[in-house]
Computed example of a mutant assay.
Amino acid sequence: MSNTVLVLGSSGNFGRRAAAAFAAAGWEVRRYARGTDMTSAASGADVIVNALNPPNYHAWDSLIPEITASALAAARASGATLLVPGNVYVYGREPGPWGPSTPQRPVARKGAIRVRMEATYREAAAKGQQVILLRGGDFLDPDSPATILRMVMLKGLARGRITAMGQPDVQRAYAWLPDMARAAAALASRRADLPAWSDIPFAGLTFSTQDLRDGLSRLMGQDLRIGQFPWWGLRLAAPFWELGRELLEMRYLYATPHSLDPAPMARLLPDFQGVDFDTMLKAHLPARPAPVATPVRAR
């Protein structure tokens, strides 16, 4: 008999990949429909993946606590384990590599919101609710247009330009979503071996904009140039544009070198193999037009 997972937010970046990864691992996958009763949807589920997130950072201060409370209530009613994709906002500018023992000292409002969210999950775990928090850096997914890499950094790639959000040599953590979702399914399968609270970093890939430029230049056979993202434009738009205002608050992350500690997940999933840097780059190469056949004249 297969295990059953309920995926909240299955149309989003992580949720979509999680649903596919659990299905590939042999799980029965249910997709939660927004606006329906979450507790009823969770009935009979072994695991709930809480990938719900307000789009474009909208009203995080009120919506994140609501989503957290609803997911915990559904998990308590069904007896399911909760699996939550975490981010790196909670660490602020702490020295890395970041992991479970790194102090949570956020420097942005959204980081503080996530600290409170994680505290709520830890409190629930202390009362017996199993929670697995799988923490990744910036999402990478060549099939999703809604990642910073595709929306901003590689937007001008076909024209020979890469956009740096900070200094080009700053190393940053990235999570290849197909791999992070596979790791989530693998950890869920091992939930009986895990404690009530697990904070597991997904190290993924760590690279700079310069590394990105050098790798893509090599693969494309051309010298790509790096331009700077116009943060001044977001400052002008911030009073009138919610997403611009929220992105501006996270500028510090593009100036803060960081990586995630691979050791905790390696201990749990020693055979897990993730994508390599070149494979990730190749998946983001611009599509090339198909060659036009040259008609051959009969002699």
Rank of each mutant, 00 (worst) to 15 (best):
N3M: 11
V7M: 01
R16D: 10
R17P: 00
A21T: 02
F22G: 00
A24L: 10
A25H: 09
G26V: 10
G26M: 11
R30W: 07
T36D: 12
T36E: 13
D61W: 08
P65A: 12
E66I: 09
E66Y: 04
T68F: 00
S70W: 07
A73L: 08
L82G: 01
V84W: 01
V90S: 06
V90G: 02
V90R: 04
W98K: 06
T102G: 08
R105L: 15
A108L: 13
K110A: 12
R114T: 02
A126M: 06
R135F: 05
I148V: 15
R150Q: 14
G156I: 01
I162M: 05
V170G: 05
Q171I: 13
A173W: 00
Y174C: 07
L177I: 15
D179V: 01
S189G: 15
A196W: 02
F202N: 01
A203F: 07
T209R: 04
Q210F: 07
L212E: 03
R213K: 14
L219T: 06
W232E: 13
R235S: 11
L247N: 02
R251T: 07
Y252G: 03
L253W: 03
H258T: 06
M265E: 12
R267D: 14
D271W: 12
V275W: 05
K282A: 13
P286R: 03
R288C: 02
A293W: 11
